[in-house]
Design a protein around this nucleic acid. Sequence first.
DNA 1: TATCCGAATTGGAACGTTCAAGCAGGTCAG
DNA 2: CTGACCTGCTTGAACGTTCCAATTCGGATA
Lengths: 330, 330
Amino acid sequence: MSQKVTIATVAAYAQVSRQTVSNVINSPDIVRPETRERVRAAIAALGYRANQAARQMRTGRSRLLAVRIEPAGDGVNGSVADRFLHGLTDAAGAAGYRVMLYTARDDNDEIATYDDLLRAYDLDGFVLTGTGHGDPRTSWLARRDVPFVTFGRPWDTPDLHLWVDVDGADGVAQATRRLLATGHRRIGFIGWPAGSAVGDDRRSGWESTLAEVGLDPHGLARETVDGIAEGEATARELLDLDDPPTALVCVSDSLALGALRADPDPAGSLAVIGFDDTPVAAAMGLTSVSQPLRQAAAGCVDLMVAMLDGPPVPPTPLLLHPSLVLRQTA
Amino acid sequence: MSQKVTIATVAAYAQVSRQTVSNVINSPDIVRPETRERVRAAIAALGYRANQAARQMRTGRSRLLAVRIEPAGDGVNGSVADRFLHGLTDAAGAAGYRVMLYTARDDNDEIATYDDLLRAYDLDGFVLTGTGHGDPRTSWLARRDVPFVTFGRPWDTPDLHLWVDVDGADGVAQATRRLLATGHRRIGFIGWPAGSAVGDDRRSGWESTLAEVGLDPHGLARETVDGIAEGEATARELLDLDDPPTALVCVSDSLALGALRADPDPAGSLAVIGFDDTPVAAAMGLTSVSQPLRQAAAGCVDLMVAMLDGPPVPPTPLLLHPSLVLRQTA
DNA sequence: TATCCGAATTGGAACGTTCAAGCAGGTCAG
DNA sequence: CTGACCTGCTTGAACGTTCCAATTCGGATA
């Protein structure tokens, strides 16, 4: 095995001092071009990689981001977290950062973990997902000036922190407009219980779109917790109405998959649109609203890096727009 | 904000030297109990946490494990990776390690990443998932004496490295025995194309179980790539036989979900069993073979820690047994 | 010619931890 | 009584990097 290559090895090889090598890496512009190239050649020849631990000790920065990994609840939507995580790791890697995972039983446990991670690893920042009303985590982090970005809007206090989100109301509006365009007039909505910020937002897209064309949403919405069985039961309720809907927009793919099973017509005349464009939806031919998770993850990293690497211009939140993926069910 | 608390702060507070504090943390037994308690009290009082970067620089160990996160291919099975990752993060945390993520386009790209991670972060080890025949990654790591564990057996060279795996043949055998017990005699199998180590292993469980009771598997197996649509088409092929199977064992939940849709009987008389017990399977009422992913992840961490923290006894591979989760479809 | 200036580079120090060696003070065998 | 050997603790050095202050040097200015 070749000996360990440090900055001193490179310096000796390129006939300069340690500090000059460091400068070539961190502020190349203050080094004379000639010298710079010589050092770069030495780095390449020796295969030098700066040791993060040493750098971190001096600078107090670790180039490490932490993300909480949550148990894939329903599984259908679980892959959303998976895809986001993948995008995040990719984008972070491109920006010279790495992603570290942690788990937590609940919000308070998570807060305890922050402290640990910050003290032991000098973490540069956190990426939080799924913020809700009155989130204790964001206020804890904000109070301590810990850099963080959320995937999900701060629903209560607009400018508490930076965020990236996908416009759920717009996604559901797109779905509703699609159904209107294909001739449907009685369009139902299956959502989550009121109070979930994300669910309420999505539902508003359905309501406002119907209102735009003068249709009355009254009596056509139902609420239930997430799940395929729940979706089926709730859809049946709606279909048993005197004047039942001919189409359903659902707040998630799980509910939509359930709704499909409630269709009494074996030919499948009931139109259904889900949300999240999960691979299962794709396989089952379910039309669904697709979130640009890769872009969202990249956005989180961009904001993070802008915060950390001294921004001349303060970064602004990012609201992305989803797109409708048309398949057999609508 | 309170000042940074280092080992020196604790030492001063407890009226001992830095080294004694270090000893209390790393080898408590060589410190006099009285002193030990005094130092522990100081640590608690000041809320001291050892700085990993400084520790790492001195010891060359980072207490960091790396895992590759793969894009959730099919989504149905994607949640498997998710659950494994969660278990891994939990178990690692309990053992004092943290999990770092990386992505890679292919095996060669992954190998390039190893080098980077090892040099820059002094990673303690890698956890690989999904090993196949002639895996270039394992040989690269083994040649360099980098500690690593795989979730998945080394299919070619038995003792090249440590591993944890779930006995797929046993899982499929359990499924097949269940179908035999409920009276089925013509039991088909839908698998992946021959050559995939995992798929071949699972298939062998079906074959051997039929052989045990004197049934001939001939003509009752089909191969296809993974996916719901593929499962449906392949199941139809089998059901169109002159003497069609009355039950199907499938190598994955995706294929099994497809097979369910091929059942001509709307009452669902075709028995189907899938593999992986994904949440979608649970929601759809699909009987499936469940892998103990949490245990598998914990096993990986155990082996890793045993390797890293100087094992008096060399650790041995771990083969776990799956269990059958009975639901409506079988 | 003397002085100053900025650009380019250098050497010492420090980040927080653990290793290796050392030092008291006491016990025990010869 | 001496020297070897414990036990419990301390001190200096080192890990690899970047910060900071200092130094050199060619050229412009007074």
